[in-house]
Nucleic acid binder design. Structure first.
Length: 278
DNA sequence: CCCGTGCCCTGGCGGC
DNA sequence: TGCCGCCAGGGCACGG
């Protein structure tokens, strides 16, 4: 569930469930997922309170009394909340556990089948704006400056799809929403970034805001159907216009079928009539 | 610097 | 049916 809308839905879910909980015990089940510290460093958060759940682009931030954790779901990371150990043992396969945080009344379980998920821990004295991970992440569509976005895009010689997936240029967009945004703008994903006009780059930001907002309202996109025990089964997959629609008719050209290409190594869906390289 | 490729992992699916 | 290669919503470390 990894693009901005899905991470935002997870953030809201965790915010509702775990804010003000006091951490009693932490288990790091997949040691490799903790990148910038040791397991002993993580034990320092025991007895701290969960103050808030924040987010920047696809990064989840769990703010504690004295530290904060930055967690990234990558491809398939998921969170579960249980009210008791018994409930946890009954309802989930523990093979994919990454991190287990027990509080005074709940268990927060972070799992990842592919083991790509990451965790980093920082002291609160390290401000978010100075954080070594987050400072490499550009602004989201909601806050990015149109001028800065245009300037970055016009310096790139790569395909525009590769550029809007680049978290250092604009953040929060992944493979699904990149396809949706480019289709909405009638832009072919292999168009060279630097050839876009300011009008087009402004329009990309505008589409991104609308599409991401709409997806958040629908609890994000769930393409693979995972267990529903996580309160974040989305429905935006039912509203996708091109992504994952190979062989289906274009919504604007009923006689034209959506085709699939590979751009920057990623599966990419387009309508060949709507999206042409100038 | 910038850009393209491979890789980290595991599971599911289509094709033979 | 059984096996095998390919693909997957992300990002980083390498090369050239």
């Amino acid at each position: 569930m990894p693009e901005l809308p899905e991470v935002e839905v997870v953030r809201k879910y965790l915010e509702k469930e775990v804010t003000n909980e006091i951490i009693s015990k932490v288990f790091l089940h997949n040691k490799k997922s903790l990148r910038n510290a040791t397991e002993e460093d993580l034990w320092k958060i025991e007895s701290e309170t969960i103050v808030s759940m924040e987010r920047k682009a696809k990064h989840l931030i769990m703010r504690l009394s004295n530290h904060y954790l930055i967690m990234h779901l990558r491809m398939e990371g998921k969170f579960y909340i249980f009210n008791s150990l018994k409930e946890m043992h009954l309802s989930t396969n523990r093979f994919y556990d990454v991190l287990e945080i027990r509080t005074n009344s709940k268990i927060i379980l972070f799992q990842d089948v592919r083991r790509f998920a990451t965790i980093d821990i920082f002291k609160n004295s390290c401000l978010l704006k100075d954080n070594p991970i987050l400072s490499k992440v550009a602004d989201e569509p909601f806050t990015i400056s149109e001028k800065i976005f245009y300037e970055k895009i016009s310096k790139k010689k790569t395909a525009i799809k590769v550029a809007i997936l680049d978290q250092g240029i604009i953040s929060g967009i992944g493979n699904i929403y990149a396809d949706e945004i480019l289709f909405d703008n009638n832009i072919h994903p292999e168009t060279i970034s630097s050839s876009l006009t300011r009008k087009q780059t402004n329009s990309i930001i505008n589409s991104a805001k609308i599409i991401l907002t709409e997806s958040i309202k629908k609890n994000g996109t769930t393409i693979k159907n995972y267990t529903s025990s996580l309160g974040v089964e989305g429905s935006y997959q039912n509203f996708l216009t091109v992504h994952q629609r190979k062989g289906m008719p274009c919504i604007r050209h009923p006689n034209q079928l959506i085709i699939k290409l590979k751009v920057g190594g990623r599966g990419t869906y387009i309508c060949p009539l709507c999206q042409k390289i100038d």
